[in-house]
Amino acid sequence: MLSRIKWLSFSIELFLAVPVFGNIAGDAIPFLLCLVAVWHACVLYVSKSEDQPILGSALGIIASFLNFFPIIRLIAHAITAIVLIFEIQKAPGME
């Protein structure tokens, strides 16, 4: 179950890292990035309770609050997506 949640988090971050989609979501719908931050907080809590890596979710929360800086926002979401994919691949039981 957690692997599916992490895959969804990865998909959201990858979507927001694409300049066209990330800029539209960040500029037009800033409330969306607040929802993404809440999503990452929930994933962080579940990951922590199952002794899984939490770095990707923590970075996702930070990336969501970097909404005010367009270029940094896209880079932060891309870095978060990369960290999440490594967490999915490396964590035991996350295949």
Results as ranks from 00 to 15, higher is better:
14 L>Y: 06
59 L>C: 09
10 F>C: 05
95 E>C: 09
38 V>H: 09
9 S>K: 02
73 R>L: 10
52 Q>S: 12
94 M>Y: 11
9 S>H: 06
10 F>A: 04
6 K>S: 10
19 P>T: 08
83 V>H: 01
25 A>N: 04
30 P>R: 03
50 E>G: 07
44 L>N: 04
52 Q>P: 04
55 L>F: 11
62 I>C: 01
84 L>K: 00
6 K>F: 13
89 Q>L: 15
95 E>V: 12
87 E>Y: 04
15 F>D: 02
63 A>W: 00
6 K>T: 07
18 V>K: 06
9 S>V: 00
37 A>W: 01
45 Y>W: 11
30 P>N: 04
29 I>P: 02
79 I>Q: 07
50 E>V: 08
47 S>F: 00
48 K>C: 13
27 D>H: 14
5 I>E: 08
71 I>P: 04
68 F>G: 11
89 Q>H: 12
21 F>S: 10
6 K>A: 11
12 I>M: 07
92 P>Q: 10
7 W>G: 02
40 H>R: 08
30 P>Y: 08
11 S>N: 10
34 C>K: 12
54 I>G: 09
89 Q>K: 14
44 L>G: 05
55 L>V: 14
59 L>H: 01
49 S>L: 11
55 L>Q: 11
48 K>F: 14
55 L>P: 05
80 T>S: 06
47 S>V: 03
93 G>Q: 05
71 I>L: 12
33 L>W: 00
57 S>I: 03
50 E>D: 14
83 V>K: 06
31 F>Q: 13
4 R>L: 15
80 T>F: 00
58 A>I: 11
77 H>R: 04
93 G>K: 06
52 Q>A: 14
77 H>L: 05
81 A>I: 06
23 N>A: 14
60 G>R: 01
6 K>I: 09
47 S>H: 03
77 H>W: 05
22 G>R: 00
50 E>W: 10
72 I>V: 15
68 F>C: 12
83 V>R: 05
92 P>R: 11
13 E>N: 13
31 F>W: 13
67 N>V: 10
82 I>R: 01
84 L>F: 07
14 L>H: 05
13 E>A: 14
84 L>G: 00
12 I>L: 12
82 I>N: 01
4 R>G: 15
92 P>C: 08
40 H>E: 09
7 W>K: 12
33 L>G: 01
2 L>R: 04
66 L>P: 05
5 I>H: 06
88 I>Q: 02
84 L>M: 09
